[in-house]
């Protein structure tokens, strides 16, 4: 069964529903070493003790794509920090007739990975990994100033928001109206087909004022979970299938065609040897970002009913950006409603 990142807590929390990947492989004599997996992927779908529960498969992480023609025309390079974006990059791109920036997933890029990139705690109980009565820590000054800045940029024409849908925000980038777009490293293969201008990618910008030493991001995408209650033969087949999926060749094939990150060091090596990154340097950004140093709060997060929490975030962020509400009210709402949902989820876990 394939479950996406935000659903991970729900699946992992459902005791008895799944067999941990590590146990499944061990029972079928398939060698497994968590260190074969690239750093950022290792623990996102693992339990508090670091045992891998779900097999990461189509892994991705947010990166910044940019239209090379647009940046050349404006005489700037891709921004490393948000300070650089606000002071230099965005005004120059606006001057050159572009909408400087759009993005496709506010909860994923500007909330979850915002916390990871700046090494800020996202939830109590070690981002929820320890379980129990987890509380979200989203109502903090760093992210509130980020959204205040975002709204200002939108008002000044330095950023545009085209709704909650993923595609609506990437379309203006593909059409060449928007100069830079924050999306998934997994969007790379698609963009190669749709964009008729030279583009490249760089790592997710950070606020130097918040953390001058940025960390790795979380993986997004989805993982595969083996359901329990199957016969030994079926389990063996599942284990073999996982082995097949993690072979360097298969991983490299997926990586090359889609842009999803190779999940093992071996597959990453094959991609390097093959000269894939000489042809497409942008394809390597995602995995480089996932291989950055880890911080205290970068291994992932684990919160139940998280799909609804994301919906609450999307709703409040939409209201911030259309001026229906202010940043303080929005984050107070997100905090209160999320904690209410987490409290409800905790009750289902008895």
């Amino acid at each position: 069964m394939q479950v996406f990142d935000a659903g991970a807590a729900t699946v992992i929390g459902a005791e008895g529903a799944i067999i941990p990947v590590e146990d499944l492989l061990a029972a079928n004599d398939i060698p497994f070493d968590i260190n074969d997996y690239i750093a950022g992927v290792r623990y996102f779908y693992a339990d508090a003790d670091g045992k891998m529960i779900g097999m990461p498969f189509n892994s991705s992480t947010p990166v910044l794509y940019y239209n090379e023609d647009a940046l050349a025309k404006a005489g700037v390079t891709a921004p490393k920090t948000w300070e650089e974006f606000a002071e230099t990059t965005a005004p120059a791109l606006k001057e050159a007739g572009y909408i400087p920036l759009s993005q496709s997933h506010l909860p994923w890029i500007f909330t979850e990975n915002f916390h990871s990139r700046h090494d800020l705690p996202f939830a109590t109980n070690d981002n929820g990994y320890d379980g129990g009565d987890t509380q979200i820590l989203v109502n903090n000054d760093a992210i509130k100033s980020h959204f205040t800045a975002l709204k200002d940029w939108k008002d000044q024409g330095l950023f545009e928001w085209y709704g909650t849908g993923w595609g609506d925000n990437v379309k203006p980038f593909e059409e060449g109206k928007v100069a830079m777009w924050l999306g998934s490293s997994g969007s790379f293969g698609g963009l190669l087909q749709t964009a008729d201008f030279p583009f490249s990618a760089t790592m997710l910008p950070y606020w130097e004022g918040v953390n001058p030493d940025p960390k790795q991001t979380f993986i997004g995408g989805a993982a595969l979970f083996a359901m329990s209650g199957k016969s030994d033969e079926e389990n063996k087949a599942t284990a073999e299938f996982f082995r097949y999926l993690t072979t360097p060749e298969v991983q490299y094939g997926w990586h090359k065609d889609t842009g999803y990150v190779p999940i093992t060091e071996a597959a990453y090596g094959v991609a390097k040897e093959d000269g894939h990154y000489d042809k497409f340097p942008a394809a390597e950004v995602g995995i480089q970002q996932l291989s950055l140093p880890a911080g205290d709060h970068t291994k992932g997060y684990r919160m139940g009913f998280y799909v609804q929490i994301r919906d609450v975030m999307n709703r409040e962020y939409g209201r911030i950006l259309t001026g229906e509400t202010d940043v303080d009210t929005a984050f107070a709402n997100i905090e209160a409603e999320s904690n209410k949902l987490l409290e409800r989820f905790a009750k289902t876990q008895n």
């Binding site: 909650t164 799909v307 919906d311």
Partner: peptide
């Protein structure tokens, strides 16, 4: 809505679906 409720308007019956099928909160 293109699959993303976001800050869009929705009706009561749509909320039943969102919370139950998308959010897995069957009781609510």
């Amino acid at each position: 809505m293109k699959g993303e409720p976001g800050a869009n308007p929705m009706t009561l019956v749509y909320k039943v679906y969102i919370d139950g099928f998308r959010g897995n909160d069957l009781g609510g």
